[in-house]
Write a protein that binds this DNA or RNA. Structure first.
Lengths: 192, 192
DNA sequence: CGTTGATGAGTCATCCATGTCTCATTTGAG
DNA sequence: CTCAAATGAGACATGGATGACTCATCAACG
């Protein structure tokens, strides 16, 4: 083996496979390992060599989703400035991985018995913290709990992602739709 | 056969089976036909006699879901009074079937290729009509499309149902949480 | 009480996804 | 070029869910 880069190993591009799998499974959650392999341009044998079973693949996708999600949280700088602005930045940053998140969200309920990845807990905490901060500064209302606002954000992201995928709404409106509905609601505001 | 009621036929209570199946599949979407049968207190043979295959069962659940949903729409009297009030009534009325709706919602994406039940379209239309009415009377903002508000309502119902099932939020807060977030958003309103 | 019809339990064959294995082929390293 | 290592294609056994079937049992009707 050479020190220089394992170049031939790159014929199997783990990251590429994961992204293709995420993309496919987002659209068709019941896709076969065979289908995943073909979508990624590799053989089922190779796919199974690197991910022992579907579980391993889903777990890897989970890690990827958590990593991307946490990267989005970083990029959104949740602690900076007004909470509302942070929410808007967050929605914008997280948009690229909503498809994957939606898939993992629905897949997670299949792992009911088992313990779930601690990453989701960390993400929950940061989002809940953001909403709580907004409540403490008086920016957000307090009759809706920070926990619920977090769950609602998840639901809106999923609904938005799905609506975009179905062509019901324009992709460009994603951020505005979600952030403004979550922040301002459906009713007109006569103030300001 | 007697005219009087087919009483012994009632040993198989179709409605009961459907409700039990809905309840179980809502919690565990991958439940076996065997599990569904046992949950309903009947044998797998009988279950298969009345629903030829899992598809038929899911289709029947779909019919049930649509019927309950439309009943909720009726009970909410969407055309009466202020649109905001109609939304609140709707959320309250539809709460009992959110679990089933969430299951069907996720199950529907498996029927991708096939044509979907026209009932969903009717329901979509009525909800979109409600939001459009609110926009036309000036009650709701117009920068968020009625289509998106409808999708968002679905997303919030799913998120709320899930959050309640997970014990993250109180069941009694369901209506208030969803309706008020959808209508008023997360930010404080200083007016009124 | 006998008949009729549905149920329950069990068996059986089938299908499909999966995981493992082998072998020929390809590709990069030395 | 030669060797090492990974890939691709295919075969194979496995397990699980499913649907169809049989047969004994049970309940209601006449």
């Amino acid at each position: 083996m050479s020190l220089m880069g394992y170049y031939w190993l790159m014929s199997f591009d783990r990251d590429h496979v994961l992204h293709v799998a995420a993309d496919l499974l987002t659209r068709k959650a019941t896709a076969t390992m065979e289908e995943v392999a073909r979508a990624a341009g590799i053989s089922r044998a190779t796919l199974n060599r690197h991910f022992t079973g579907r579980d391993a693949l889903v777990r890897a996708l989970e890690e990827l989703g958590i990593a991307k999600c946490e990267a989005a949280l970083e990029a959104a700088r949740l602690e900076e400035g007004a909470a509302a602005g942070a929410v808007r930045r967050l929605v914008r940053e997280i948009q690229p991985c909503t498809g994957l998140l939606t898939f993992l969200y629905s897949e997670n309920q299949l792992f009911e018995g088992e313990k779930q990845n601690a990453g989701w807990f960390r993400i929950d905490e940061r989002l809940t913290g953001l909403f709580r901060r907004g409540q403490e500064t008086g920016e957000f209302r307090i009759d809706l709990s920070a926990t619920w606002l977090t769950e609602a954000l998840y639901g809106l992201l999923a609904a938005g992602s799905w609506a975009v995928a179905e062509g019901r709404v324009a992709r460009n409106d994603f951020t505005h739709m979600i952030a403004e509905l979550l922040l301002g609601g459906a009713m007109r505001r006569d103030e300001s």
